[in-house]
Design a protein around this nucleic acid. Sequence first.
DNA 1: TTTTGTTTTAAACATTTGTTTAAGTCAATT
DNA 2: AATTGACTTAAACAAATGTTTAAAACAAAA
Lengths: 204, 204
Amino acid sequence: MTKANIDISTEEKLKEAARAVFTRKGYAAAKVRDIAAEANINLALVNYYFRSKEKLFELIMDETIQKLFDKIQKIINDESSTITEKVENVVDHYISLLLENPELPLFFLSEVMSGSNKLTRMTNNGKVFFNSHFVKQLAALQAEGKIKFHPVNLMMNMIGMIVFPFLARPLLLKSGALGEKEFRAIVEERKKLIPLWLTQMTNM
Amino acid sequence: MTKANIDISTEEKLKEAARAVFTRKGYAAAKVRDIAAEANINLALVNYYFRSKEKLFELIMDETIQKLFDKIQKIINDESSTITEKVENVVDHYISLLLENPELPLFFLSEVMSGSNKLTRMTNNGKVFFNSHFVKQLAALQAEGKIKFHPVNLMMNMIGMIVFPFLARPLLLKSGALGEKEFRAIVEERKKLIPLWLTQMTNM
DNA sequence: TTTTGTTTTAAACATTTGTTTAAGTCAATT
DNA sequence: AATTGACTTAAACAAATGTTTAAAACAAAA
């Protein structure tokens, strides 16, 4: 096997294992040996391929952030779509994404906490949100008197209503309040409900 | 100094330091030496007073859960109050509490992730929520046809709208989208807005 | 077949980290 | 003043954890 072939074998296997373990336990609690074990691959190869635990984490974190913010950015900065359309697109896209990766929000937030350099990487994406065409449209709506509160409220409500069920998910499932299937159904239903709720909040 | 006096000195100082460090970094990343340093107290005293890092964490976690769920439980199980009153009370109480302890939700969630035995401790509180008088009232409302979706949606929206701003807070502040003062003002305003929004979601 | 460069392995290393120990300090009691 | 018992300290210990090393395995090239 030459290097090019190996890349889609050992290295990729390790990366997937790392993503899983980091997601499940967080950076500090995830041990390099856990990752190696999860991938069924020799411990030393983690450092062989990625230099260090930290480097590996940053690699995965960057990919995750990309996945989370890339599409959304395009949606909320599309100057040809209405607010309602943007909301519908964001909600639909995000919920679909999270249904496939339910642990993303928790992974994400747990590293917000640890702060330090990892947080900085996300801050820029935060700016993108609050300087977006979407927010400008909201501000215009407010100027018309159709919103009687700070536009950031709508932003937070939208993201919050999308994301929160996935944060509560472990509690919901473990407590038996909902089953996995019920959970999916409810969240799926929210694709239509959230845009509805959001328009009800304004006088549109 | 006898033991009774010391209790409000060294032991309490350590507990406060532990709360701060655990909150800031999460269980795994918080080192016993960090806690001792934060309290300016000799390393060995952590084990002297609390037996182990884990025991200390559990102590603090229990107190935190108590603080988070105690009052709420009473509110949502009060059989003499209407849904609207319950919502108003929960929102008002929770937001006030979180304004004083903005880091609680993040602390909380970061440990949901690490799972294991720590999660179990919270599960029961989850059940209390979803078996509450409040949820029964919601179910009744649904039976009348005034809600066209699973009642758990209202529950999640309520909690989500209360909690989410505090989860996004580090990002909001660091990105410069909001200042500390603005943040407080917006969240304070939400005390009135959230109950309003929630009633708009139903046909009440 | 021998050589070459890459990948894999088991073992070792150095540091970090939770915990314990043994001796010291100090205030109250005898 | 001596004793007692709780608290404090510096040092040490043992386990864990990230990283490195030196040798082996292996596939492709010569």
